[in-house]
Each structure stands twice: as structure tokens, then as C-alpha cells.
Design a protein around this nucleic acid. Structure first.
Length: 275
DNA sequence: CCAGCCCCCTGTCGGC
DNA sequence: TGCCGACAGGGGGCTG
């Protein structure tokens, strides 16, 4: 659920409480959550390092330390927040990794479904170099986007979800971007005209930026680091609105499966190429 | 290389 | 009321 807008909101919310804090110790209770290095080395290496800055790459959270970068992927149900050591938090029952900080603070990683992962690396490029361009950055060019659709027969929505093509788009914002562009999600990627590709690139950016402006979508698990909910979910055109009237034309929103994902679209505003 | 599919996990919800 | 299967989906890995 956390996609680029949600992850960006988390990063923004963590900067103030985290930058300048020193990590003193690490605890975990679920082996698979610690991706690499192995827990013993992870704990030994991370202890003593100070948080210098925070950034985001695709859906990954980057916490830059003195000598390493602490990388976190929230996957489906991950939540990352700072709390006083003696303070309780509603998500504490699912905490599987915890970092003790100086001044009696803690960085907690809560993850009910245990899909999330944490990494410690001194080579972020080796870890995340496979990711495609940041959709809100300069590298996300119209020419590159168009080229990435050529010769691809898979559904355009499936292509948008491939992180090596564009970093940060997930199920929700893929549906929203395709609606805004008036493109049926099941159309083969290679079938888009240059005009459609150009429009879709713009609506991907627009959907994501709108999501950031609304501080993400709080569906099921996602919360801001301060525990508050984002507002993006209240403004979706199609996601989660099956059977409800299209905000543009009033037709009932359809729900189908594309690339094994629940997919929402307006059959009138996003005509299929099959007809 | 490509595209389809399974799996990891657990909370929630609808149906009976 | 309680049980059970379906569903949610990011992304790694396997298969044909």
C-alpha cells in the first residue's frame, strides 16, 4: 500500500525527529525482516552511527548514517516511527525491529504482515541501482518513457508497476494515472500512441504529486509517522470505487484483474482497444 | 529475455 | 455467533 507518496510523507515526517540522533543499539524478533547483513553484523555496525539525512528512492526509505545507509522498505503493512523509549504506540504490537537512539528515543519498525525489510549498506547503488528513474525527477523523460513501452505486449498497467521502468508507482497510483490519461489498464504497453504515452507520463507525475500534497492514502495500514492519516484516499477517481459513479461521466467504475492485481477503471472514460 | 504465476504474511470481511 | 475462505498487494523467484 505505501507507494511513492506515502513513503515520501514518511520520510518528511521522520527528518525532524531523526536527524542528529545517534543509534545506540538494535533489537529484532523476526529474522526475515533483517535482509542484510546478518543480524549480528547489522547490530554491531549500526550501533554508534549518527543520522545525517533522510531521502527516498522509489518506495525505499534511505536513512543516511555516518558510514552506512539504513534502508527500509515498508512493503504492505510497514510503519516507521520515532517514539520516546517509555511511550506506547498503537502499532507497537507488530514491531519487529527497533533501534535505540540517544536521548531515550527509539525508531520502531512495525509490520503486521512481515513483508517489510531493512538493510544496512555502504553501497546504495548496488542495492537500488536496478530501479528506474524517479517519476518526479529530471531523469523521467518523455523519450525514455516512450521507448520503455515499445515491444512490450504486457498490459500498460503491469508495465507501470515494474520498478525498473519507473520507481515508486504501485497499484493505487497506477490506476489513478491511467484514469487521468483516459487509457484502459489492460491495453498492451506497445499499443499506446506517442500522444497517449506523453499524456500518461504527465498523469503519472500528476497522480503522485497530488498524493504527496495530500500526505498519502491511509487505506488499511498506512499512517503518517505522527500517527495521523493521509487524505489521498478521499479523492481517488477510481481506486476502491467499484460500482460507484465515475467522477467525470457518472458511469459505474469497473473492477477487473490485471497482472494479478485488483484494477479499477471507468469503461467510458478509458475505452478498451478491443472494441 | 519475456511474461505469467506462486509465494511470503496476517488482519479483515463476507458468506453460510 | 463462529468458522472459513477470499482478498489485500510489493516484489523476489521460478517456470515454460
Amino acid at each position: 500500500m505505501p507507494e511513492l507518496p506515502e513513503v515520501e510523507t514518511v520520510v518528511r515526517g521522520l527528518r525532524e525527529p531523526l536527524v542528529g540522533r545517534r543509534i545506540t543499539a538494535m533489537w529484532h524478533d523476526w529474522r526475515r525482516t533483517i535482509h542484510s547483513p546478518a543480524p549480528d553484523e547489522f547490530a554491531a555496525r549500526v550501533a554508534g552511527q549518527v543520522v545525517k539525512s533522510l531521502a527516498r528512492r522509489g518506495k525505499y526509505i534511505l536513512i543516511h548514517l555516518d558510514h552506512d545507509t539504513l534502508v527500509v522498505h515498508l512493503k504492505m503493512s510497514g510503519r516507521l516511527y520515532v517514539a520516546a523509549a517509555d511511550a506506547r504506540h498503537e502499532a507497537d504490537r507488530w514491531v519487529h525491529v527497533r533501534f535505540d537512539l540517544d536521548q531515550q528515543w527509539q525508531l520502531r519498525f512495525s509490520d503486521a504482515r512481515k513483508f517489510g525489510r531493512v538493510y544496512l549498506t555502504d553501497d546504495v547503488e548496488a542495492l537500488l541501482g536496478h530501479l528506474g528513474p524517479e517519476p518526479l525527477g529530471d531523469q523521467f523523460t518523455a523519450a525514455g518513457f516512450r521507448a520503455g513501452l515499445q515491444g512490450r505486449r504486457l498490459a500498460i498497467k503491469a508495465r507501470l508497476l515494474q520498478q525498473e521502468f519507473v520507481a515508486g508507482v504501485g497499484n493505487i497510483y497506477a490506476d489513478e494515472a491511467l484514469f487521468r490519461a483516459g487509457i484502459h489498464p489492460a491495453r498492451p504497453a506497445e499499443s499506446l500512441t506517442d500522444v497517449e504515452a506523453g499524456r500518461l507520463r504527465e498523469t503519472v507525475r500528476k497522480a503522485l504529486q497530488t498524493g504527496i500534497d495530500r500526505e498519502g492514502a491511509s487505506i488499511n495500514w498506512y499512517r503518517k509517522p505522527d500517527g495521523g492519516k493521509g487524505q489521498s484516499q478521499n479523492h481517488f477517481f477510481v481506486y476502491g470505487r467499484a460500482e460507484q459513479p465515475c467522477r467525470r461521466c457518472g458511469s459505474p467504475i469497473n473492477k477487473i484483474r490485471v497482472a494479478q492485481r485488483g484494477t479499477h477503471f471507468c469503461p467510458n472514460c478509458q475505452p478498451s482497444s478491443l472494441k
